[in-house]
Design a protein around this nucleic acid. Structure first.
Length: 923
RNA sequence: GCCGAAGUGGCGGAAUUGGCAGACGCGCCGGACUCAAAAUCCGGUGCCCGAAAGGGUGUGUGGGUUCGAUUCCCACCUUCGGCACCA
């Protein structure tokens, strides 16, 4: 075993770490703490993917580095194991999801352990373990027992909810209804996204373009009783607290957009006939004079009530069509606006104009008041609709002259909506006001007259929290039923002592095809008798997000059977100092977690209002670069003539489908800014790296890489590939490159021609030369800085440079080489441990002190300073590093070559940056 | 359409308080070792002209600021990610 042999070295140290519990974290930190977290995986049947180890390697490197710097490091791993695939598999094969899940977890654990990550495995959690989901259920009950006090801006226990006297006087049922309507977890009958293929209701977030995010099955809307979580109560705090977080601006922006706070005004338009008022929400109250009609969403409660007798049938028909439309159809057909006139008119409060009330599905029932005032002159959607139905368009904001010219509009006749700010016109007493000023004035005016008030709305909706599936956490609640078996509306939470409420055994996992949850099949489980009453258990289950909302808390105190997490331990470890994971969770998981965390914080269980202090999203790793050429029959077609989405090519001018053909790298060459066939330089080739996918067949399996090159090479390669946050293509050749580097490090220490791992004879206890010493300390500095700023690629490059310096040395001074092992240890821990041991150390280097760069050794004796003439480098001076400006000028001007180049020219200016450059500006 | 990120050799990438563009790795070319191959080691490698010395040119495109721009400003193009009738 003399040459570098990962298959022997790596399992040896993995066993060592496990056996010795090298990475066991104490219950409480001793000294400074560092909580570094990965987004735990869903253990799919497909196994690990090279995307997983990217983030895991980054966190592992930092965890190991922080340990060497004396931190108490909490670095755990677990499984987000509830969810659809295991259940789908159960439906297809009859295998219980428990078995599938256990098998998959076993496989994931094996794969992850083969990569040498320094997790404390004693803290492993599994969201499907009743000992875990007991506390998920407990948190749900806490949400159920919490209401949001808008004055104190805080979640508080139900016991604190003041009951208005009027409600109290109406009796127990009214009080209960009042309480239920304030809980953070509540039931609602509402149109949901029912996906028949998956047999479940999906959250809005899980529906993409009217299809399920998972599997892309059609989704239709239907009303159903659901559990909801009142995340909207926390919208403001979720928005404001983003400021306190060290997250990338783009992720924060995505969350802000998702929360979608918008300021505007609510205005009442009274109906011409009858006493009713239509309330609308607008962000442009300054355009009130331009409101030429109103629009109600088809689901608006007034929609049918206000309709004129002769329009009722048309309205009803339209409502029906709109209700039948799936979200998909709504967005697909959005190109052309539809709607019906209700026959009713309302009065514009600012100018008493009589405006028609229309019903159209471009207005959403779920946002604002479900009704809008339409200002076609200044809103693109209203403009489109007004055009379609020949409604009047009035300009009330004067667009700039250029805009009118560009669009061919006049103030009297707009060719498109002007949505910018400007100066008001056609607005009575408000004419001449700027948009901003107008908004303020009109809001006050409306408020004074009792016609409206300033108002804030959010795009964020309450969170639909129930699923009609088996493989999820059961809700720990009972519904009271009367003697006829009908629900009375009384809901009884289980006592804490009754948790966990375990999933019943089930043999048939098939969804019924109707939105009735499979748990309903467990008849004996569902029916409960207690206190002389009959009850039914809730048969919905929680969504996959539930378990992942709080797992980072359980890691702090994973075995606690009396609490989800001890308060003292939470105080000591929170917040998570660094959280790394994929950007696909930028909105949902992170928003949901923040919400739960805030509730737990409000209720006094946690020390701070935010869970994750710093967040980094690792970039996606794409497959290897692919070159694709196109053929029409037997004739090549240049890629510039083809629209190609990665699967299907279509010739631009004929719309004819073309067969894409993979071309080997050595068949193409770069010409200009594109790749062409070597054989035919006029035929361009599509060159791209694609997302890894089974169907494309470009998935890289980490097991294979480990087998061929070892875990250290995989780890190092994934970090060397480029910046952590960037999307980057995989290259097997690149893995080979870092593998060679590790081999060179090995041979720096170990005699690879010897029988056993013995040190090289040239490795001797001698003081290093000055240059080597400087190189070492510069390397320490660069690697340390790289780690502190998460730039692993450049840290690795620094070590490579140092190794390149050491390799040719005939005598290897041990004091200059030993620190290299420590620098490399976080990146390639197996190799480092093996060499460390060969150097005679008894203990693991996991807690060896990190090398420190000594300022004194970093200094250079001489540096090169470029001399530029008119910005072009003409020569370089070798000078002492601290040479001052005057001396540099003198040296530069005295130089033979400078004299030569300046002959006959006049020096206009001399710019000197000591230590950096000299620039002579001449004419 | 809107929001965000990014465009640098054949490829991945490095360099930012504005100061030597291309570190490091891959690939490629040449050499050493070898009977040979692999492995390893040494040297070269942005592009153009040139035998060389040397010169020119160059960080998506076009402009600007500056002694000096990959870095700052304006406009545009392309790619990727997110949102998408949210009034």
């Amino acid at each position: 075993m003399a040459s570098y042999n990962p298959p022997v070295v790596e399992p040896k140290w993995q066993d060592f770490w496990l056996k010795n519990k090298t990475f066991k974290t104490p219950a409480l930190p001793s000294g400074p703490k560092y909580y570094i977290l990965d987004m735990f995986p869903y253990p799919s049947g497909a196994g690990l993917h090279v995307g997983h180890p990217e983030g895991y390697t980054a966190t592992d490197i930092l965890a190991r580095y922080k340990r060497m710097r004396g931190f108490s490091v909490l670095h755990p791993m677990g499984w987000d194991a509830f969810g659809l695939p295991a259940e789908q598999y159960a439906i297809e094969t009859g295998t219980h999801p428990r078995l599938t899940t256990e098998k998959n977890i076993g496989n994931f654990r094996r794969q992850i352990q083969a990569l040498g990550f320094s997790y404390d495995w004693d803290r492993e959690v599994d969201t499907t373990d009743p000992k875990y989901y007991r506390w998920t259920q407990w948190i749900f009950l806490l949400l159920h027992d919490t209401w949001y006090d808008a004055v104190e801006k805080k979640g508080r226990p139900m016991a604190d909810l003041p009951i208005p006297a009027k409600v109290a006087s109406q009796g127990e049922t009214a009080v209960r209804a009042f309480q239920d309507s304030h809980r953070l977890a509540y039931q609602a009958e509402l149109p949901v996204n029912w996906c028949e293929a998956l047999g479940t209701v999906l959250a809005n977030e899980e529906v993409v373009d009217g299809r399920s995010e998972r599997g892309s099955h059609p989704v239709v809307r239907m009303p159903l009783r659901q559990w909801m979580l009142r995340i909207t109560a926390y919208a403001d705090r979720l928005l404001e607290d983003l400021e306190t977080l060290d997250w990338s601006e783009s992720i924060k922006e995505m969350q802000r957009n998702w929360i979608g706070r918008s300021e505007g005004a609510e205005v009442g338009f009274s109906l011409e006939k009858g006493a009713g008022t239509i309330r609308v929400f607008t962000t442009r109250p300054d355009t009130l004079f331009g409101a030429t009609y109103l629009v109600l969403s088809p689901e608006h409660p007034l929609a049918s009530a206000i309709s004129a007798e002769e329009r009722k049938e048309a309205v009803r028909a339209y409502q029906e069509t709109a209700a039948r439309k799936s979200d998909f159809e709504r967005t697909e057909l959005a190109k052309k606006k539809t709607g019906v006139f209700s026959g009713a008119f309302a009065i514009n409060p600012v100018n008493n104009a009589r405006v028609p009330v229309w019903i159209a599905d471009y207005v959403l029932a779920s946002y604002g008041t479900g009704a809008i005032m339409a200002v076609p002159g200044h809103d693109e959607r209203d403009f489109e609709f007004a055009r379609e139905f020949q409604l009047p368009i009035v300009a009330v904001v004067r667009p700039p002259q250029e805009w009118l010219e560009k669009t061919g509009s006049t103030l009297e006749s707009l060719t498109e909506a002007f949505t910018g700010d400007g100066v008001a016109c056609n607005s009575g007493e408000f004419n001449g006001l700027d948009t901003g000023e107008f908004k303020l004035r009109i809001s006050h005016w409306l408020e004074k007259k009792g016609l409206g008030q300033a108002k804030v709305h959010f795009k964020l909706r309450d969170w639909l929290f129930s699923r009609q599936r088996y493989w999820g956490e059961p809700f720990p609640l009972l519904h009271e039923v009367n003697s006829e078996g009908k629900a009375t509306g009384v809901v009884e939470p289980l006592a804490v002592g009754e948790l966990p409420l375990e999933l019943p055994a089930l043999e048939d996992f098939r969804p019924s095809g109707k939105p009735e949850p499979p748990l309903g099949k467990a008849k004996a489980w569902v029916k409960v008798e207690r206190n002389g009453k009959s009850w039914l258990r809730e048969t919905n289950t929680m969504p996959q997000w539930a378990g992942s909302c709080w797992y980072y808390l359980r890691f702090i105190d994973p075995l606690n059977s009396g609490s989800f997490c001890d308060k003292n331990l939470a105080d000591a470890w929170l917040p998570v100092d660094l959280y790394i994971g994929g950007a696909e969770h930028a909105v949902l998981h992170l928003l949901y977690s923040r919400f739960w965390h805030k509730v737990l914080f409000d209720r006094g269980f946690l020390p701070g209002a935010e869970p994750f202090h710093k967040l980094i999203n690792q970039g996606m790793i794409l497959g290897e670069m692919e070159f694709t050429a196109f053929k029409k029959g037997e004739v090549w077609v240049s890629a510039s003539e083809v629209d190609y989405d990665g699967r299907q090519g279509v010739e631009k001018k004929t719309d004819q489908a073309l067969a894409g053909q993979k071309v080997a790298e050595d068949q193409v060459e770069k010409k200009g800014d594109a790749f062409v066939l070597k054989a035919m330089a006029n035929i361009r080739v599509d060159a791209r790296a694609y997302k890894m996918s089974k169907s494309r067949g470009n998935v890289i399996n980490p097991d294979q890489v480990v087998e061929e090159y070892g875990a250290d090479s995989l780890r190092l390669y994934e970090m060397f590939l480029g910046p952590l946050e960037a999307t980057k293509p995989w290259s097997m050749r690149g893995v080979e490159g870092v593998y060679r580097f590790l081999g060179r490090v090995w041979r720096l220490f170990i005699d690879d021609r010897a029988e056993h791992s013995s040190l090289l004879p040239s490795l001797i206890m001698a003081p290093p030369g000055k240059e080597t010493l400087r190189f070492l300390h510069q390397t320490i500095k660069r690697v340390t800085e790289g780690l502190e700023t998460y730039r692993f690629n450049t840290a690795i490059a620094a070590m490579m440079e140092y190794v390149n310096h050491l390799t040719p040395l005939e005598v290897k001074p041990r004091p200059a080489l030993e620190p290299l092992v420590l620098l490399l240890a976080p990146f390639a821990p197996h190799l480092a441990e093996e060499i460390w041991q060969a150097l005679g150390n008894q203990d693991s280097l996991a807690y060896a002190p990190w090398p420190l760069a000594v300022e004194e050794f970093l200094k250079e004796d001489a540096i090169e300073v470029p001399v530029q003439i008119n910005g072009k480098v003409r020569l370089k001076l070798t000078v002492p590093p601290d040479l001052d400006e005057d001396a540099l000028r003198e040296m530069a001007l005295a130089h033979e070559k400078v004299k030569e180049l300046l002959a006959g020219k006049t020096i206009r200016k001399v710019i000197i940056v000591p230590g950096r450059l000299v620039n002579l500006v001449v004419s």
